[in-house]
Simulated assay, not measured.
Amino acid sequence: LAEQMRQQRENGDDGDGEGKGKGKGGQGPNGDSPFGANGYHPEGVRIGQDKGRHGRAVKVWDKREYKNLDDSVELGTRNIKVALRRLRKWTRDGAAEELDMDGTIRGTAEKGYLDIKLRPERRNKISVLIFFDVGGSMDSHIKVCEELFSAARTEFKNMEFYYFHNCLYESVWKDNRRRHAEKIPTWDVLHKFSRDYKVIFVGDATMSPYEITYPGGSVEHWNEEPGALWIDRVTQTFDDVVWLNPTAERHWDYTPSLEVMRQLVGDRMFPLTLEGLEKAMKELAR
């Protein structure tokens, strides 16, 4: 085999089962010899070619590299729903409107006539409060945030959301088109919901560190108190708080403000990936 290959090379035949023969009698570039590269042969041996073209080679004498499947890809709505389902606490409450099949069978057998039993519907008791960072550097993450928002509204029947920009300050809002006219005091939000609400911040935490640590640090208005104080108030008010960051985790060390925010939420910042979202839900479910 080696001798045949050597002779083919000396004759200038580069065929291998990966192209259509062009040279006289299969000789020359793109020939029809079973050995070489960029030629054609139905059962060729591919050597020295960057990739397959026809999928016919019976052997490939090159070092081939393969990539592991990536679990850090951005999420689709369906995958997000699956990950969010880890955060569930089932309970039956409310009006008895669902047929209790086991109870109906048992009651009918005991009484000798049809005894229909009803029970409350099984519901997810978890309550969720989400704060979405919008504008600026978050514009490049709109798609994944929309997917998260859509999935969360489907999975959590008891969910509230608010918007903020860069860092949480003394006010938030529900409608970005009217954010200057219809602001909601953050104090009102902190006093409106019970401690058992699961709080999720969604943002890239990418800003000037002054926006977090100093009064007046906001780029849009004069904040009397630093954003760090408001983040601390949230973590003191609610038992379970996590931060989901759409920025790839490998870039986190290069952003000082991100590290500051990560410390403020007790190192409970997770990348907005399939793996990161699952870890965040486990943290909230503890």
Score class of each variant (00 low, 15 high):
101 M>Q: 08
82 V>D: 12
93 D>I: 13
86 R>L: 10
79 N>T: 14
79 N>C: 13
105 I>T: 08
99 L>P: 00
97 E>C: 04
105 I>W: 06
99 L>Y: 01
75 L>Q: 01
73 V>Y: 12
84 L>M: 07
79 N>I: 14
98 E>G: 02
85 R>Y: 08
79 N>E: 15
82 V>G: 04
101 M>Y: 14
88 R>L: 08
72 S>D: 11
98 E>I: 10
106 R>K: 13
71 D>L: 13
88 R>A: 10
91 T>G: 08
100 D>R: 00
82 V>W: 02
69 L>T: 13
75 L>R: 00
96 A>G: 05
81 K>E: 14
75 L>E: 00
76 G>C: 04
90 W>S: 07
92 R>N: 03
78 R>Q: 13
89 K>V: 10
94 G>N: 02
101 M>D: 13
81 K>F: 00
76 G>M: 05
78 R>F: 11
70 D>H: 05
87 L>A: 00
80 I>H: 04
80 I>F: 06
86 R>A: 10
100 D>C: 01
68 N>D: 15
80 I>T: 14
95 A>P: 09
96 A>D: 11
84 L>P: 01
106 R>F: 11
79 N>F: 08
85 R>G: 11
70 D>R: 08
69 L>C: 07
68 N>W: 15
103 G>E: 04
74 E>V: 03
76 G>N: 14
92 R>S: 02
87 L>V: 11
86 R>F: 10
83 A>H: 03
94 G>P: 02
94 G>F: 03
101 M>V: 14
92 R>L: 02
96 A>V: 06
80 I>Q: 07
81 K>L: 04
71 D>H: 06
72 S>P: 03
102 D>V: 12
93 D>L: 12
88 R>F: 08
102 D>W: 06
100 D>E: 03
85 R>Q: 13
103 G>C: 06
99 L>R: 00
69 L>Q: 11
91 T>Y: 11
100 D>K: 00
70 D>Q: 10
88 R>M: 07
78 R>W: 06
74 E>D: 13
74 E>Y: 14
97 E>H: 11
82 V>S: 06
82 V>A: 07
103 G>N: 04
100 D>P: 00
101 M>K: 09
68 N>A: 15
84 L>D: 02
80 I>A: 06
91 T>K: 12
102 D>Y: 05
87 L>K: 01
83 A>D: 01
70 D>T: 04
83 A>V: 03
99 L>V: 04
77 T>D: 04
73 V>G: 09
87 L>F: 09
80 I>K: 05
95 A>H: 13
89 K>Q: 15
103 G>A: 10
98 E>W: 02
87 L>I: 09
96 A>E: 14
78 R>G: 07
92 R>Y: 01
81 K>I: 05
93 D>W: 09
98 E>A: 09
84 L>C: 02
93 D>A: 09
102 D>H: 12
103 G>Y: 05
96 A>N: 07
86 R>T: 08
91 T>D: 10
100 D>F: 00
68 N>L: 15
72 S>N: 14
97 E>D: 11
75 L>F: 00
83 A>Y: 02
76 G>Q: 08
106 R>N: 05
77 T>I: 15
88 R>S: 09
93 D>M: 10
